[in-house]
Design a protein around this nucleic acid. Structure first.
Length: 277
DNA sequence: AGCCAGGACAAGT
DNA sequence: ACTTGTCATGGC
């Protein structure tokens, strides 16, 4: 892996296990969109303008080394050895196949608060509409960064709102869940940024105290927003995938990096259009 | 037009 | 402990 300062940004080259398309479209994040030559989205207060340079790598446009190392390096999980993780899957031929198919998927380290709200919104919903609701949420209550790019609104800001005030984002029955999560986070009852330091079970228990957060949403927050790589969110797609791929096992355990296994299986199930039960 | 969506919850067995 | 209806909205 090479990281070099260029005139118009930072170039990431000679990188294995990083497919920006797969990583942005595997359903883990909702704030990235296709651009002319890559993907563009918001990370905290920063705009990530990633341009694909075929055969060369990725150019992170309009940024410098300092910002790259502080914001993008941790977000895109660049310090992790994915080869090592995948090698731990090699005794599982099914998982190996899924891992090969999904090669390049990285687990982004998203903001825990943003992840909580995003996956509350995700319940009984589809990805295009989830993205729309989150977009309206940011445009309505987040701070403008530049042009059409808005930061994710703070818990304090949303905690001051009524469910009626959220009507414009059209979150439906999830509006009151969002407000409840905001209030618990803003007052400190839910220590959202401590979840990464807690053992998995304890962290999950904390999240389950929020109205509208069940096991699946909690596991998504733990995996995508709190660095708990062992979290294994079970949704309808994973249920189908497990039933088809592991018909004899009722609850397969993929270990410490089950979260990555889950992403591979999820991507595999969706892209291969695995039949319904 | 109608089914269903990266579920959770409450009320019923 | 399992099963079922309901929730608000709109993508396909």
């Amino acid at each position: 892996m090479n990281i070099t300062q260029q005139a118009n940004g930072v170039l990431l080259s000679d990188i294995k296990h990083f497919d920006i398309k797969k990583s942005c479209e595997c359903g883990q994040c909702f704030r990235f969109n296709k651009s002319v030559s890559g993907y563009i989205g918001v990370i905290g207060q920063n705009i990530a303008d990633i341009r694909i340079l075929p055969g060369e790598g990725y150019l992170f446009a309009d940024t410098d080394m300092e910002s790259f190392m502080r914001v993008f390096y941790p977000y895109f999980d660049l310090g992790r050895d994915y080869d090592k993780i995948v090698s731990a899957f090699e005794n599982d031929t099914i998982l190996c196949k899924a891992a090969q198919f999904g090669n390049g998927i990285r687990i982004f380290r998203q903001d825990a608060w943003e992840t909580l709200i995003s996956f509350i919104i995700s319940q009984n919903n589809n990805i295009p509409r989830i993205k729309g609701i989150i977009k309206r949420l940011c445009e309505s209550f987040g701070e403008q960064i530049q042009d059409d790019f808005y930061a994710f609104p703070s818990a304090q800001r949303l905690a001051a709102l009524s469910t009626e005030a959220l009507a414009p984002i059209r979150a439906g029955f999830r509006a009151r869940y969002i407000i409840d999560a905001a209030k618990k986070t803003a007052c400190g009852k839910l220590a959202i940024y401590e979840l990464c330091a807690l053992p998995y079970e304890n962290a999950q228990k904390e999240l389950l105290t929020v109205t509208g957060v069940g096991k699946k949403v909690a596991d998504c927050v733990l995996l995508f927003g709190a660095g708990h790589t062992e979290a294994f969110p079970v949704d309808v797609w994973i249920k189908r995938a497990l039933a088809v791929l592991y018909p004899d096992l009722d609850e397969p355990d993929f270990g410490l990096y089950g979260g990555l296994a889950q992403q591979y299986l999820f991507y595999y199930a969706r892209e291969k259009h695995l039949i319904k039960l």
